[in-house]
Simulated scan of single mutants.
Amino acid sequence: MTTLIYSIHEFAALSGITEYNLRYFDKIGLLPAQRDTNGYRVYHQRQIASAQMVVTLQNARLSNAQIKTLLKDYTSRHSLAMLKQTQQQLTAYIHTLHNAQTFIACQISQLETIHIINNQLDTPFTEEKKSELVGVISLETQHIGDFFQRASEFNAPPNWYLHHRYGFLLAEKDIQSKSYPLDKFYCTEPSIIDHRSQYLSAGRYISQYCSGSLENNQKVWSFVQHIRQNGYRIQGDILIENVSGPAVQTKKSDFLIKIMVPIN
């Protein structure tokens, strides 16, 4: 049977390895080439399988030195142990990639939402909200950072606020023209829900997106006054929820929040 011989150019096309890398692999003895009568590199057909294995093992994040060792004595116990270890590392890496993919998908969704919201800032609208289970943290403080610190005490991951919604529950009577107390924090982070849960009220809300932070945002007072002046009766806690915050913006004036006022 005639053995097929390929030039480096032909072998590069067959194997998917660039000619530059083939020369390098030949130099380090990872995928040795033979020489024809003119001194040019040539490859045998049987080396296609070896070339594909090299590429696959590189994709598995093995170094060239590890691959060379592996291929030198492929059926040894050492090679078996190396492949098992590589499999474990790949499983962990795939998990990491999956988390990164989920995070990026969430960020894309959030940014798309922000682009839509920017076109409807300070515009009231009505909505019907379903009852929702959330976790609640109660503190007597005016510093929003204290609530995040408290959340960390319930085994919430450090970056939980990048993946879960959060905001404050405000009593109508506590909202003043320039301030309101931050003493009841809610979020959808599971460990906080396990610590202390509460259902957000279902029903009809008048809502509005606006700029600024969750702390003492004067637009909350203005919005509540607007609702009163239009003859609506507020029933239940007012929700102010983060839409975009520290992970996206750098100035509090650039933050976006959603104000949700329950009405009869």
Rank of each mutant, 00 (worst) to 15 (best):
A156Y: 09
K84G: 04
R196T: 13
I116V: 15
F25I: 07
Q218L: 10
A171Y: 05
F255T: 04
E241C: 06
V220G: 06
Y166S: 14
A65W: 00
Y74T: 09
Q149K: 11
D237C: 03
T250H: 15
N264M: 07
L57P: 03
G245E: 14
Q66K: 13
I48N: 02
I206R: 02
G231H: 01
I259M: 00
Q107G: 01
I144Y: 09
R23S: 06
P32R: 13
Q52C: 05
T141E: 07
S131W: 02
S109I: 02
L80Y: 14
L22H: 05
G29W: 01
R23P: 02
F147I: 11
D254Q: 14
R233N: 13
Y40K: 07
V55P: 02
P246Y: 13
I193M: 09
I8C: 00
L139S: 10
F25H: 11
L71R: 07
Y6V: 01
G135L: 10
L239N: 04
N159R: 08
Q149I: 03
T102L: 08
Y43T: 02
I144A: 12
Q218S: 12
D146T: 03
T56L: 15
F147N: 08
Q142R: 10
R77I: 11
I17S: 06
I17V: 10
T141R: 07
H98S: 12
N216Q: 14
C106N: 14
R46A: 10
N155I: 02
T18N: 12
V55T: 14
H164D: 14
A171P: 01
Y166E: 12
S7K: 08
K84I: 07
R228P: 04
K68S: 13
L169K: 07
G245T: 09
Q176W: 00
D237E: 14
Q208W: 04
Q87P: 01
S138P: 08
I114K: 01
Y166Q: 10
I17Y: 03
S211M: 05
N230H: 15
I114A: 08
I263W: 00
M82I: 09
Q142L: 07
T102R: 08
S76K: 04
A81V: 08
Q52K: 12
F125P: 05
Q66C: 09
A151W: 05
L111T: 12
G236E: 03
F103C: 03
Q52D: 03
Q229V: 00
K219G: 02
V136Y: 07
E140F: 11
Q45N: 06
Q58G: 12
S177L: 09
I257Y: 07
R150W: 01
C210K: 02
Q34M: 10
I17E: 07
I257S: 06
L83H: 05
E10F: 00
Q107D: 01
A247G: 14
D194M: 12
N38I: 10
L111G: 03
W160K: 14
T141P: 04
I240S: 01
Y74W: 05
S63C: 06
G236P: 07
I67W: 06
Q107P: 00
Q176D: 05
P246G: 12
P246I: 13
I67M: 08
A100Y: 04
S244E: 10
Q45E: 12
A202R: 08
T141K: 05
L90D: 01
L133P: 05
T2G: 12
F185I: 10
I238C: 02
H115L: 14
I238L: 05
Y20N: 15
V261Q: 04
I234Y: 03
R23I: 05
Q52P: 00
I193K: 10
R46M: 06
Q235L: 12
E132W: 02
